[in-house]
């Protein structure tokens, strides 16, 4: 637990420092975007959690600001994914994430972003209806192209690693197997440039 907090705090400090130390620029120059995405979500095939859950649908929204720079932007987002199964088992996942999005230096009409970030993943498991918030880590790739001055259309793929093995098994459980979560989202994305 202590390790997790240290990692998260370090990442928070890193992001905050980058924001605070960013070159003072007038607010009109700061590029900002909001966007939404929608698409299939799935437990990563081959991982333990994929034995219990099936692919279903998810969606989310995000806010991105060009801090500390236009090449390294800060992104905040939230999404909702619901995973079903062929039994009564199901999982609702709501990750709240903060990430740094790096614009890959390709001289193309299409923009590519690589992202890394941390999450608080609010999870609710069915049929027990138990919930908890777990630390998670995000790695993502995004491709988008401008559709006019204000709108970008793109495709994003997110990988979430949800860390649970640091928790203790329930006290009275015998042979309780602890697992982590590996999830993959693929979404069609539309974002709007708030200023240009």
């Amino acid at each position: 637990m202590k390790k997790i907090k240290i990692i998260i705090i370090s990442l928070c400090v890193l992001i905050n420092t980058s924001i605070i130390m960013a070159e003072e620029i007038s607010e009109e120059q700061i590029k900002q975007q909001v966007g939404i995405w929608f698409g299939p979500v799935t437990p990563l095939p081959g991982t333990e959690i994929s034995d219990f859950l099936d692919t279903y649908l998810g969606g989310g929204g995000f806010y991105r600001i060009a801090l500390p720079s236009n090449e390294l932007m800060t992104e905040l987002g939230v999404s909702y994914s619901y995973y079903t199964s062929d039994t009564t088992a199901a999982l609702a996942s709501t990750p709240l994430y903060a990430a740094l999005a790096y614009k890959l230096p390709f001289n193309l009409p299409v923009e590519f972003h690589a992202k890394a970030g941390v999450c608080a993943n609010i999870l609710k498991v069915y049929p027990e209806k138990k919930y908890n918030t777990l630390p998670a880590f995000l790695g993502a790739l995004e491709m988008s192209f401008p559709a006019g001055k204000w709108v970008n259309i793109g495709l994003r793929s997110d990988y979430y690693f949800v860390y649970e093995k640091y928790l203790d098994p329930p006290g009275d459980a015998v042979n309780y197997k602890m697992i982590n979560g590996h999830f993959f989202n693929l979404g069609l994305m539309v974002n709007i440039n708030l200023n240009r």
Partner: peptide
């Protein structure tokens, strides 16, 4: 941004959730 990151630090304890699926 800073408020958002503070939320992330909240409530990282408690009982396993994902592992409930495997047990």
């Amino acid at each position: 941004i800073i408020s958002f990151l503070i939320i992330i630090l909240i409530n990282c304890t408690g009982k396993p959730i994902l592992s409930e699926l495997a047990n």
